[in-house]
């Protein structure tokens, strides 16, 4: 198992968001977390990524508590949350260069081809703040094309993307899963018609 959640519980204020959530993510699997607004989907992803401590329960990466193997885990994890992590003052290329470099990956030439793949041709040298929300989202998602990490945790990756963008992302998911990667995501999209199997975890809104 790549990633396991054991009896996870999250509490916001005095309200229990969810409890006793178990999740086993193996390589080659895509997990979709579903549920209404406020059910704790983002919180679950953040707990799995180690950004939020769980009220109860453990998250295990290859059988080891993630806080115990933090560096090894983050070496193998790519998390894209609500906020993209793209610096608005920097261009697409500068942003991607940073995220590539911290993964130990240097672009020998500017990654024009990569940007073309995610539909950002001609926008390479414009600060991200002058791009639309969808285009900024594409910059963040472009990390998926060079990332060597096996586990991807993506919070609403399809938000702000147009039809082409969504299709392109599906293709990329398929390749990643075929290579033995794993994906955990939240989305209101119906992924059942995809060519890869989708595992679903349903969170219910609790009062």
């Amino acid at each position: 198992m790549l990633l396991q959640g054991r009896e996870l519980q999250s509490v916001r204020g005095e309200r229990v968001l969810f409890s006793n959530i178990n999740l086993d993510v193996a390589s080659g699997q895509l997990w979709q977390i579903e549920g209404p607004n406020g059910a704790g989907k983002s919180s679950l992803l953040r707990i799995l990524a180690g950004l939020l401590p769980a009220q109860q329960g453990d998250v295990l990466f290859q059988g080891e508590e993630i806080q115990q193997c933090r560096e090894r885990y983050y070496h193998d994890l790519l998390f894209i949350g609500h906020k993209s992590g793209i610096k608005p003052e920097l261009t697409a290329i500068e942003n991607l260069e940073f995220y590539a470099a911290v993964e130990g990956h240097e672009f020998s030439t500017p990654p024009y081809e990569l940007l073309a793949q995610v539909g950002l041709v001609g926008l390479e040298d414009i600060p991200a703040q002058r791009l639309s929300a969808g285009q900024q989202r594409r910059i963040a998602l472009a990390r998926l094309w060079f990332s060597q990490t096996r586990l991807w945790i993506l919070d609403e990756p399809f938000t702000a993307l147009d039809v082409d963008g969504i299709a392109m992302l599906h293709d990329r998911f398929q390749v990643h899963l075929a290579q033995g990667g794993a994906i955990i995501l939240t989305s209101h999209q119906d992924l059942q018609s995809m060519s890869y199997p989708v595992n679903r975890l349903q969170l219910r809104y609790q009062h």
């Binding site: 519980q9 509490v11 005095e14 229990v16 009220q55 109860q56 609790q206 009062h207």
Partner: peptide, 8 residues
């Protein structure tokens, strides 16, 4: 079950 059941 109590909705307010809490770990504490």
């Amino acid at each position: 079950m109590w909705q307010w059941l809490h770990p504490y």
